[in-house]
Design a protein around this nucleic acid. Structure first.
Lengths: 136, 136
DNA sequence: GTAACTGCAAAATATTTGCATCCTT
DNA sequence: AAGGATGCAAATATTTTGCAGTTAC
């Protein structure tokens, strides 16, 4: 039923960028790291394919952009990314915090299939830079 | 320092739509409910103003749209919406689940200012409709 | 009267789609 | 050779901005 995917150099490049990153990436990040060598449409299509295969999950940032990060506990058709994401409100970086936490109780009749928890705040770097700036 | 806001009929209409709704609303929802009487730019500007005043909070849906809902525990400049949001993957409705839950522990150095937790799944209505459909 | 508000049009941003061509299997 | 993959251009979707005219205070 599912599409038979091919292992292309383009996909490998995108996978490498994902693997090398400690934070989740938006399209802009891929564009920068790949110096625009891969077309926008292709990047989005490949990332969507990875999501469909359960290799990558999407995170909706608080800035209207979609971020992508490698999955560690997922398989095709059954995502299991019930961990926390942190987005810095200054540098916009999104980090996956790989710590499962108690699943909240839903009202009767609601069925959960997925959970995205996005915490906003300052990452250590930005926090320090702000502190340094305010000292002066 | 802050802008002195005026109490206009337009703002009242938008506030009424928000008050009357049990779920969070995206621009499209306002457009429908107001039959397009208020310009798009105005709707967005008013909603942003409400957010700045701490009356409304934004939720980034998993569909790339921004949803808006009334705040209950917030004040200007200090949002406190650490509750859970639920979005149905079928009808896209977003509900605020007004139940505080244990705040997750962040790695050292990370400072939290806000948290958005979005659970995806099926709302009772959609779940039943799917179940009914599958019976046939 | 003044500054905030509104509507209209246009711009900006993010993502998707159609299609011709290319490349993996 | 067949069908998935890619690049290019154009389309779509969402949100924002500039500006001129309007309105609340």
């Amino acid at each position: 039923m599912d599409i038979r995917r091919r292992n292309t150099k383009t996909k490998q490049m995108i996978m490498t960028v994902l693997s090398d990153s400690s934070s989740a990436l938006c399209y802009e990040d891929f564009e920068k790291q790949l110096s625009g060598t891969i077309d926008k449409a292709t990047v989005y299509r490949i990332l969507q394919g990875f999501c469909d295969d359960g290799k990558v999950h999407k995170i909706s940032g608080n800035n209207g952009k979609t971020y992508y990060a490698l999955c560690h506990h997922c398989n095709s058709g059954n995502h299991n990314d019930n961990h926390i994401h942190f987005q810095c409100i200054r540098c916009q970086t999104i980090l996956c915090i790989d710590k499962q936490f108690s699943i909240p109780v839903l009202p009767p009749g609601y069925r959960m299939t997925d959970m995205h928890c996005l915490i906003s705040g300052h990452c250590p770097d930005c926090f320090n830079e702000i502190a340094d700036y305010e000292k002066k």
